[in-house]
Design a protein around this nucleic acid. Structure first.
Lengths: 194, 194
DNA sequence: ACCAGATTAGGACAAATGTCCTACATGGTC
DNA sequence: GACCATGTAGGACATTTGTCCTAATCTGGT
């Protein structure tokens, strides 16, 4: 009926609530209140809480893919594409300082819960991993491409955890500058290293 | 009565359960079952769940302090002390691959819950931060000591998150080798950088 | 032998949880 | 106007949650 279906609205609100409060701590009632529908009505759209989580993960996978495709389509140099990834930390710094990385914290929580969906959540980080690997390969860095991609994931996830712990914006900017410096040093390194 | 008091046993078991399952997802019943006492008996030792969390955090603070003091007392070179910190990732790799870093994941969860104890949990990471800063200073690296300490925290937290997500032990070893390399490059850098 | 305090088991309690059912409203199709 | 699929509200349901009470048991000191 509505321009955006109720189902999509549920997934959108659930995504935000899972991010800001955690999956386990978010109840059906919380989501229903955020969407503005009755608790019972939920059952029509999602049979279980896990089904909502599944939809939330699918939505994140799709959005991530779209974002990466957009960066890819812009025709920018691979270096600039990698910088787009790094600067997500700056662009989302307010929420990161409050709740950490939406993907990293979800993966951590689902790992602890030993939840069936943990591998699907990990795939989101896998999308970044593959895409970053591709960027390094496009730069002629073949042998170490995957390791560099993993290192960027490590660095950004670490910044997110520490940023949420100490709530220090200057720290984020310092680390991001450090990542960019690291990247530029990589790109002028002799080809034999790659 | 027992060699180790019931209260201590509760804190110990709660600590493990919070780590392996998360604070929110762990119930009184879970802890009682792990300790082997009745649910009601809990109230005698801890009035609320938050009180248990408080005791767990205190215990972790104390254990962390003891560990850092031990490393300090061993008379090793600051470089070796820093290596002890880094190699925690190797020593605890099995649990880290399953549940992440006990401190980092706790801080992340409490941040999301906006829990009153989140700052006390952050103090545990603060202990590492101060201690690492002291090691760099002992190495004559003054101006950048704090930044280097923060960077080590970032790196190790990032490794923990990614290790728990992808469950890859070889990756952990590769990153730890990278951290050690980074450290050694730091220590041969011209003093003007410090 | 006795007692006071500490410790324990068992369960009560209201509130919240995820799940599920039924009845009503709405809007489009024959 | 009759019909049907879809969406919605309200609430039932058993279970679990954190919290709290009471009564029994244990222990160490006198």
């Amino acid at each position: 009926m509505t321009a955006v279906g109720t189902r999509d609205l549920i997934v959108e609100k659930a995504d935000a609530l899972f991010y800001e409060g955690g999956f386990e701590a978010t109840s059906f009632a919380d989501i229903a209140a955020a969407v503005g529908i009755s608790r019972g009505n939920f059952y029509h759209h999602f049979k279980t809480k896990d089904a909502i989580l599944d939809a939330v993960i699918s939505r994140r996978q799709q959005r991530t893919s779209e974002m990466l495709d957009n960066w890819q389509a812009k025709g920018a140099a691979p270096r600039d594409r990698i910088l787009s990834f790094i600067r997500l930390l700056i662009a989302n710094r307010i929420k990161i300082m409050a709740f950490g990385c939406p993907v990293g914290t979800l993966c951590s929580e689902l790992a602890k819960l030993d939840h069936a969906a943990q591998h699907r959540a990990a795939e989101i980080l896998g999308l970044f991993r593959s895409w970053l690997t591709g960027q390094f390969q496009a730069l002629g860095i073949i042998r170490q491409a995957e390791a560099h991609a993993m290192h960027l994931l490590v660095w950004s996830q670490g910044v997110a955890v520490i940023a949420a712990t100490f709530r220090d914006e200057a720290f984020i900017r310092r680390e991001v500058a450090g990542i960019e410096e690291w990247l530029d040093e990589l790109l002028v390194a002799p080809a034999v290293e790659n």
